Simulated assay, not measured.
Amino acid sequence: MRRMRTLGLRNFVHLLPLTAFLIVLICFFRFNNLGQVINERKGGRKFSLSYQDPSEKQELIQVLRRATMPDRTVILTMVDESHASPGSMLEILLQSFKSGQGTKRFLNHLVIIAMDPQAFEYCKLLHPHCIHPSTFEPYFTIKRHSIITLEHNVLTWRRNNVLIEVLELGYNIIFTDADVLWLKSPLANFNPTYELSISCNFSSGGEREDSLREGGIFFMKANAIALEFLKHWKLSRILYPNPNAEESLCETIKQNVEITEAYGFRVHGVDANHFGGLCQLNKDMLEKVYTIHANCCDGLSSKVHDLRIVLDDWIHFNASEKMALRWPQKCTG
């Protein structure tokens, strides 16, 4: 009898890894099928974590087809009502494309994802490639239920879900934050053979070892490796929620070197001197940088104020008018 109990215990111990794997697998499928059990009613219409009908996904497909470059690359940005209104960040972003060196052509490839109906309506007045919020409704409406409480992390969480959707359709992505000015074409800085090309900057207000933040723009290649890496990141945040964790791609890669190597997820580090920000100032900035990110800046109104000055300085700089940098003024970190 004792021997039988010993054998039973040993068999149970051997089954523990398989049991743990099955639990993780069940959690993954439950998360990806939450739309079947969790619904929210808005205006008489139910929204779940999956497309309600083929027309919503078809809208995304049609917009991406119209906006794609020949190599199936699209430029994505995300805005809400605070970014898309008269005199707002969206107007400055679009103006930078028009005023940059060789960047106006990229407007044809820019897809703006609106996170609320107000942003979508204003976007349509300014740009031909706007995505209605119902296309990604689940990712935008679960904010109040999110396991992530930091506003920056919430935005990153929603963005990564959108990246997965677009990569699954086979489109390479250049993602740009709305508070980034495009002064020159950044494409030469991206390595299309790598899964990710990104510039990482140290966060402000702390030691260099604290955390790494994205430079406001990155390139991601549409292949199975990139897709599986994002899905792993997504699943790990469900299984091991940490509201205080830094959610940037740069910090995630830094903290998960073994995972990136296991997936074969290759990262091309872009020279941070070419992707500037209000934290990284130097007198030759307008000559060297391709984009400028409104980092070291907390308030949206402060970002709009200082980016307008940057854009105005850039226009005068192109007219061969030498000047001292007049910014930042309100963005002081």
Rank of each mutant, 00 (worst) to 15 (best):
K104M: 08
V154Y: 07
E228Y: 08
D284R: 15
L94Y: 02
G269K: 15
M69E: 11
E246C: 15
F275P: 00
G216A: 07
P86L: 09
G205M: 12
K322D: 13
L18H: 13
S55P: 01
G215R: 03
S85T: 14
S99V: 11
M115Y: 05
Q58C: 10
I75R: 00
L7R: 14
I112R: 03
F140D: 03
K231G: 07
N32K: 15
L7C: 11
Y171Q: 00
G8L: 15
P133H: 09
N39M: 08
Y290T: 06
F219Y: 11
G102H: 14
I113K: 05
K234Q: 13
A178K: 01
L196A: 02
C296Y: 01
E321I: 14
G206E: 12
H268R: 12
L181F: 04
E59F: 04
V74G: 02
P54T: 10
M220G: 02
Q101F: 08
I92S: 01
I92H: 01
F218I: 05
T176Q: 06
Y139N: 06
I75T: 05
G205Y: 07
E228G: 05
R308N: 15
S55M: 09
L110M: 05
K57F: 13
A324T: 14
T68W: 00
E287V: 08
L90Y: 03
G206C: 09
L278D: 02
S204M: 07
Y240S: 10
L150N: 14
V79R: 04
K234T: 08
L196D: 02
L187T: 09
C130Y: 01
V24H: 10
Q329F: 03
L34K: 14
G299R: 15
S211G: 11
G87R: 08
L249G: 00
D71H: 05
N160V: 10
V304S: 02
L25S: 10
Q95H: 11
K254S: 09
S302E: 08
I309Q: 03
L155D: 06
L278G: 04
N33I: 09
I292G: 00
V162C: 00
Q255S: 14
G44L: 06
D179G: 06
R30V: 15
S248H: 09
D312N: 15
R213Q: 13
K288Y: 08
F97D: 01
M323G: 11
H232V: 09
G102Y: 08
Q118W: 07
N160I: 10
I75G: 01
W157L: 14
N244F: 12
A262L: 12
Y139T: 07
R30D: 14
R41W: 08
V270E: 01
K57V: 11
I174M: 04
P138T: 06
V304G: 03
S82G: 09
V154W: 06
G277Q: 04
R208N: 12
W314A: 04
A262D: 13
S203D: 10
E214W: 03
E168G: 07
F31P: 01
H83W: 12
H268L: 04
E251H: 10
V270I: 12
E91N: 10
K124M: 10
H83K: 15
H83T: 08
F120P: 03
V154R: 13
V289Q: 01
